[in-house]
């Protein structure tokens, strides 16, 4: 510490000129990321799950639609799936839709937290007891899309998965 202590008047925010440029550039860069993801999410439709209905995990499986989990055909190539997650399986375990279908997934849990990730798509949801997780996607390419539990749910968590099968030459 120098003996002649500088006074408050001489104190000032100090940064190297290059460092100042980096500060401005960093802010522009981060703003660009924020705009890009907002456009994809809110304008182009690459959306994350939002706030859906609440349910009671103790009784949700007792009444429709959850008492009969499975696929429902809404017509015009649109489908919805009501799915129950539990230690250590999904109901239903297998879903078949024709290529070109639009499928909305409603998933909830009757016990602990689970995850739902449909491989090769952007369907990726936490499944939390008491809440319904919902996302919709379109399936044009025929093939098998496994859906796997990607949130630790107990000792046999690794065995928990199911399959969406998109069939070629559907009726749509």
């Amino acid at each position: 510490m120098s003996t002649d202590t500088p006074t408050e008047e001489t104190a000032s925010f100090h940064a190297d000129p290059y460092e100042r440029k980096w500060i401005m550039f960093s802010l522009v860069l981060l703003a660009a990321f924020a705009v890009t993801v907002a456009v994809a999410g809110f304008a182009l439709g690459f959306q994350v799950p939002g706030d859906e209905t609440r349910v009671d995990p103790r009784t949700v499986a007792d009444a429709p639609p959850w008492s009969q989990p499975g696929l429902r055909d809404l017509g015009n190539g649109e489908y919805e799936v009501y799915m129950l997650a539990q230690q250590y399986l999904f109901q239903p375990r297998e879903i078949r839709v024709p290529a070109g279908s639009t499928v909305t997934f409603y998933v909830t849990s009757v016990d602990v937290q689970h995850g739902f990730k449909l491989q090769d798509t952007n369907i990726n949801m936490q499944i939390v007891p008491g809440h319904v997780s919902k996302l919709t996607a379109e399936f044009d390419t025929p093939g098998e899309y496994p859906y796997i539990c990607h949130e630790y749910c107990g000792v046999a968590h690794a065995a928990m998965f199911g399959s969406l099968i998109v069939e070629a030459g559907g009726d749509s």
Binding site: L29, F33, T36, A40, L44, G45, F46, Q47, V48, D120, T121, N122, I123, L135, T136, A137, E138
Partner: peptide, 18 residues
């Protein structure tokens, strides 16, 4: 920017979710 964009393009390629 390059690495981030490569993941962003994977998102786009996997199709919309609403």
């Amino acid at each position: 920017v390059l690495l981030w964009l490569s993941i962003y393009l994977i998102l786009i390629a996997r199709g919309v979710t609403t």
